[in-house]
Design a protein around this nucleic acid. Structure first.
Length: 266
DNA sequence: AAAGGACACAACCGCACGGGG
DNA sequence: CCCCCGTGCGGTTGTGTCCTT
């Protein structure tokens, strides 16, 4: 491997760096990273990692920021339009995830890649369709038409899930740093023990990120009403920037593009 | 209720590329 | 040129959660 030394910039810790952390990010680390970027901007990731006091590689910081912490990262299910766009773009561009992501504002290449690998590829296997063949779009088109018909004739959408019906939420304070609270594996915060119970606010780090977090929280509060309909822990799963019309009109109406696999495809 | 498998996704790894010295 | 460094990309892995038996 001729290029090892380049990749080792990030990956192989020196003796001094042997305490580098790996694995899931903690809220404290997220806070440090956000705070630093709010004050100094992005870029120079290795320097950033050191100066921010993070025991992470620059590469890890960059990835965490771009894929998760950056304010305009959109979370929540992909809409039908987004899914169709991904499929269409993939048929043209192949596995150029970053290029595909450029056409989906707020979506990351990692998210699109994961979506493709975990859902689309599985279905294409079922369909016995080559991922890069022209049949993909045909199959998708048929699927979407079928699904639209199915949905329009079936107004009972079963969404939100019945398990979340009648859940109530406490008011969210302006200082709640909810976007930090995610559904990643190894999250340091436990899920609420009941649908309307949030973790103690004291479990969150101090709101030390200044305007950055305040603006973020404000965005979240603007979306509070529709998001709350999801139920307590689902709010944490949702991104503060998910627009209500998207959620209400798209996700709820069409659900998952691939959710009809068992009915139509298999 | 418990165990095991499947799934989803965050995070890591290896590599390539471009710019600056 | 060559080397180093920072960055970006695509593939892969690790692990928590969900589902099924």
């Amino acid at each position: 491997m001729a290029n090892v030394s380049k990749s080792e910039n990030y990956s192989k810790p020196s003796e001094e760096e042997s305490e580098l952390r790996r694995g899931p990010w903690t809220i404290e680390e997220d806070t440090l990273l956000i705070h630093y970027i709010a004050g100094h901007g992005e870029g120079q990731w290795n320097i950033l990692a050191k100066q921010a006091g993070l025991k992470r590689t620059g590469k890890s910081c960059r990835l965490r920021w771009l894929n998760y912490l950056k304010p305009d990262v959109k979370r929540g299910n992909l809409t039908l339009q987004e899914q169709l766009l991904i499929l269409e773009l993939h048929s043209k561009l192949g596995n150029r995830w970053s290029k595909i992501a450029q056409h989906l504002p707020g979506r990351t290449d990692n998210e699109i890649k994961n979506y493709w690998r975990t859902r689309v590829q599985k279905q294409l296997r079922h369909l016995k369709v080559e991922a890069n063949s022209s049949r993909v779009l045909d199959a998708i088109h048929d699927l979407s038409v079928l699904e639209a018909m199915d949905q329009s004739s079936n107004p009972s959408l079963n969404f939100p899930p019945s398990s979340l019906h009648n859940t109530t939420l406490p008011n969210m304070s302006e200082t709640a740093i909810l976007p930090f609270n995610d559904n990643r594996g190894g999250s340091p915060l436990p899920p609420p023990s009941s649908a309307n119970q949030w973790p103690e606010i004291s479990e969150y780090p101090p709101n030390s990120c200044g305007e950055f977090v305040e603006a973020w929280s404000f965005n979240m509060l603007q979306k509070q009403e529709p998001v709350c309909a999801l139920g307590a822990w689902e709010v944490a799963d949702c991104d503060a920037h998910m627009a209500a019309p998207d959620w209400l009109l798209e996700d709820a109406m069409v659900g998952n593009l691939w959710s009809l696999e068992d009915h139509h495809l298999v």
